[in-house]
Design a protein around this nucleic acid. Structure first.
Lengths: 265, 265
DNA sequence: CAGTGGTCTAGACCACACT
DNA sequence: GTGTGGTCTAGACCACTGC
């Protein structure tokens, strides 16, 4: 391609892939990375919604005025980051947390003798959900200012009759305006699917810090264990697009019947 | 390319990429997957050793009689699995555990307020290393038979003066014949680098099961904590090529000064 | 400078899914 | 059959490294 350029509908000036973009640093960015950025922008802006198909590689190539191979490489990366899902013969879809086979995408807890995921769905119980102002610590985790409104919720997950997870979570008040204990309790399915459907907030990645701790009495009660029972503490910060933190979650996992799985490579 | 075929030095018959390979199942396998398998075989057989450069994409393409792009895709996958390392302008290298910037590739423990990895090297102390026969449980984990010879070792890792990790590990006696406490203690650097250099065993991936537990008195002593201190139990099975298990490791991590990090996506 | 990996293209054909 | 993603090729050019 001699002069790659974007269509007017993308409001992008023509550019040459190999050229430096500014003065100081070279800032060379491959064409496919720029295409990836444009697709990402469309995802953020909701041009294609979770679960929907996006245009075919051929169409995207025409739209961005690049070759199909270049679009392919951009889509490949987005698919490997779990933002898109490719299905041969059908198309490329916007990833969603509301699918059976990718439910609990971020939950690494597995039953001890669980042959597979044949554990059945978890029983979810909302303990509370209240509005409050962010402490310095919460604010820092969510990139807010101290005192900004946040939602705090606590819930317990029970697997096959055994209360196994007790977690507290904090959400920024703005994006989640209108979330109540009732709406949380009424929704059957992964919480992130609810966030997606009701608030347009898509969690795309998360970081976890894991420790071994002892529960306080309230937590021990909720899980039906003694306060001397060691539990896994899982502190998660979940991010939407552009590395914007959207949730802080502190979970306590019982590990007498389950374990936290991790694959290293 | 009309008739892709391998050179005689690879002892492979010519083949057509898109054709079924047998009678029953189609068993279609893309060309690049087959190339990947051949490169993998060369890695296993030690044709290229850890840290060495492998032939250029162009050379590999000629050797396998496929296009450079096909080799590229095979190498891409091997690089994404951390078996190869690409360095622009220099070549593609066999990955190794003996490199500074990938040391502790499998250790996910990080200091609490650690700005980065500025913690300095760990102090390693070998507590014991003995030969014994595999219990049913150990044998199952290492794909051995009960009673097969195994090596068992225990060590403590100390960071900035604080004993933080106590781990037991079991290795199959065959591949690790000749390993002693002395050789373990004499080696400075990651244990997997020693395995690589001295025994030709390369760990390429691992699975971990994490729980919260209490230490027994011996473990508590070694870590300098009370037996009531909750600790992270990390059970790891490490694999070399072809998913062959080569190590079972049970670590106890102190998480009052460190945490186990995990990235979800 | 030559040699390496990295990007981009254009076109052909295959495997798969839906109609 | 038509349209999708998936594979493979051949060739051009760019970016980086080391001689």
């Amino acid at each position: 391609m001699a002069t790659p350029a974007f269509s007017l509908s993308d409001s992008e000036p023509p550019f040459s892939p190999g050229l430096p973009s500014g003065g100081g640093t070279p800032a060379f960015s491959p064409l496919y990375q720029q295409i990836k950025g444009l697709i990402l922008r469309s995802l953020q802006q909701g041009e294609w919604k979770p679960g929907e198909v996006i245009p075919s590689e051929f169409d995207l190539a025409a739209r961005f005025r690049v070759s199909q191979g270049t679009v392919r490489k951009a889509v490949d990366e987005l698919a490997s980051e779990n933002l898109l899902m490719r299905r041969q013969g059908r198309g490329t879809f916007v990833a969603t947390h509301a699918e059976q086979h990718v439910q609990y995408r971020f939950l690494r807890l597995e039953p001890d003798s669980g042959t597979t995921d044949s554990e059945g769905p978890a029983q979810r119980e909302i303990i509370e959900c209240k509005r409050l102002r962010a402490s310095a610590e919460i604010a820092r985790a969510l990139a807010l200012r101290t005192g900004d409104p946040v939602l705090q919720a606590r819930r317990v997950l029970t697997f096959t009759g055994v209360p196994t997870i007790c977690e507290d979570l904090w959400l920024p008040g703005g994006p989640f305006k209108g979330l109540t204990a009732e709406r949380l309790a009424a929704y059957h399915g992964p919480m992130y699917a609810l966030f997606e459907a009701e608030f347009g907030v898509r969690m795309v990645r998360a970081d976890e810090k894991i420790r071994a701790v002892l529960p306080d009495t309230a937590q021990a009660d909720l899980l039906g264990v003694t306060p001397a029972t060691p539990l896994l503490s899982v502190e998660r910060i979940a991010y939407t697009y552009n590395d914007v933190p959207m949730e802080l979650r502190r979970g306590l996992y019982r590990t007498d019947t389950h374990y936290y799985r991790n694959h290293l490579s």
